[in-house]
Design a protein around this nucleic acid. Structure first.
Lengths: 319, 319
DNA sequence: CTGAAAGCGCTAACAC
DNA sequence: GTGTTAGCGCTTTCAG
């Protein structure tokens, strides 16, 4: 099918080396031969076989991405952005949905061996096996950890949740909310909240209520009654999913947002933008993060990179 | 880094062929040697280099996926389902976001040459260059076209929009709607609508209104006034996006759904499930379609497969 | 039962 | 300027 260097060499009556030189613009080759080879190559649609090149050079343009199977919108959004960026630089993502078990990781890496040498670890809500670094080492793959709790050796790009959350809560405080409810139980959401409170002069500090439930859509919806009875005038949810569940409840019960209660979520799910009232939320630093991934891939720094990116508050109609 | 067959052969003092035989369980090898080789392989974490294997066998386990960059939720949903299915069978998706131009396609296929031999074409909203079949041929890649308008040679899996739409409209008619508005201008949405109407005895047939605008969220929102003034008691939108735009409008204006007007969309975007009232819609046959893709990949049928899958009406709160 | 060897398509060091 | 050649790591035919 596809023509090879060797065939091209035979066709043009020169050595494979010369063909290679012409095609790669290395050194000088007689203009005449050059042209002939070039036209021959074009006519036969010569394309280097990347499998062979990769084998020879022991590197590839494929970037493995380990992601969770769970349908978190924000995840897919990030992924899509990354895909586009990779491709624009001539890299391609190879996706594996992963549960984090050593067994599965081993299978994946084996299937990728020699074809993928950089792995972006972007797992969420799964328990990652401690064998991961060892497995990566064995398969000689370089990991880039994105927003991972476990501190495996390698590049780490993390997300500072506090900044965006602090700004969000500050807005609530500044707009005179007196009873703020925090709904959820993720430790990572706590710092920003505390910051906003401690920045506020004591006499102006609102009351802080808590409802510690996991941040699912269902929970947001089910807790509706309880939230409204709490007397809170503003509520911050751990996740947009949960906030959206609550907004579903309020829509159903004719509760006016933000007049009766202001709502802020976390994640910037697409759904938050399409509903009415649109959901104020804290957005992930997707762009910056993905840019950083790309720069690591392209520059392959010897030192392990550790960077943190800030989340950002996005004010919409719900507060 | 990674140990090779050759090294394993040297370590165990046999030929490379014998090692290979043991590792692949081909024919019999002296039990003693067998065990030694096996333990050696395990100790050194031997993993075959897929790049080399692919080169030799001229095939691969990577499946290229051409998808649109546009952030259509339904697209990503389908993609995610496909990813999981592929992986469960030991295949991996390699993603390229594509604008359909010959130039870009050529670049992508060149980058993939020898590494990808099956390409799932799942493009939407882009003009695909007519060079595609030729380019695929040149790179010896087998296409699987998913829901594509252009009839290039190869396997085609298409989506029958009519079935789900007919059922949707039938429900509207059965529930006594008298003025049904169709909002959108996609030709593909017309057949099912016509079917539902012509199946209905003439004296019971509702009135059919039309508003021919493209199915964007913005349009759904902007057309709110016009839709309400049309006097329609039910509206079918070309896309969930547009329906969601309209529901945003109705939420903002305190219009009761479905009492004042029943709403049905098309696509089954996630957002339609989380809002109140949840959006009745017509869903794509994602599972069946992706199963079919997998069976083509695994069975590599000689004959071009042409299959059509039906959409399905999902009734929720909005009608 | 086991091994030698060819070759997938490409790169690049090393001659001439 | 141009050609020869030795691999990258694997599979598999063909001889022993």
């Amino acid at each position: 099918m596809a023509i090879t260097l060797k065939q091209l060499a035979e066709l043009s009556g020169v050595s494979i080396r010369t063909v290679s030189r012409v095609l790669k613009n290395q050194a000088h080759v007689q203009e005449e031969k050059r042209k002939q080879i070039l036209s021959l190559a074009k006519r036969h649609h010569y394309v280097p076989n990347m499998a062979a090149r990769n084998l020879r050079l022991n590197r590839s343009r494929f970037v493995g991405i380990l992601c969770s199977d769970a349908p978190y919108e924000i995840f897919r959004q990030k992924l899509q952005d990354l895909e586009a960026r990779l491709e624009s630089r001539g890299y391609y993502p190879v996706i594996a949905c992963c549960d984090g078990s050593g067994k599965q990781l081993n299978k994946i890496f084996s299937d990728w061996s020699g074809l993928v040498d950089i792995v972006v670890v972007s797992l969420f809500d799964v328990e990652i096996s401690d064998e991961l670094p060892e497995l990566l080492e064995q398969h000689s793959m370089m990991p880039i950890y994105v927003d991972q709790e476990k501190h495996f050796p390698g590049h780490h790009l993390s997300i500072d949740r506090a900044t965006g959350i602090r700004d969000a809560i500050s807005v609530l405080i500044r707009t005179g909310k007196k009873r703020i409810l925090r709904c959820g139980c993720l430790q990572s959401r706590e710092t920003g909240l505390q910051q906003a409170f401690s920045e506020t002069p004591e006499q102006m500090r609102p009351e802080l209520l808590r409802l510690e439930k996991t941040g699912t859509f269902e929970n947001g919806k089910l807790l509706g009654d309880q939230i409204m009875q709490s007397g809170a005038d503003a509520v911050f949810f751990d996740t947009d999913k949960m906030a959206l569940g609550f907004l579903n409840y309020t829509a159903q019960h004719g509760i006016r947002i933000p007049e009766q209660i202001a709502v802020i979520g976390f994640d910037d799910d697409i759904s938050g933008q399409i509903i009415y009232p649109s959901l104020s939320t804290v957005a992930h630093p997707t762009e910056e993060l993905n840019k950083a991934i790309l720069s690591i891939i392209e520059e392959k720094p010897a030192q392990a990179i550790k960077k943190e990116f800030s989340t950002k508050f996005i004010r919409r109609e719900s507060c």
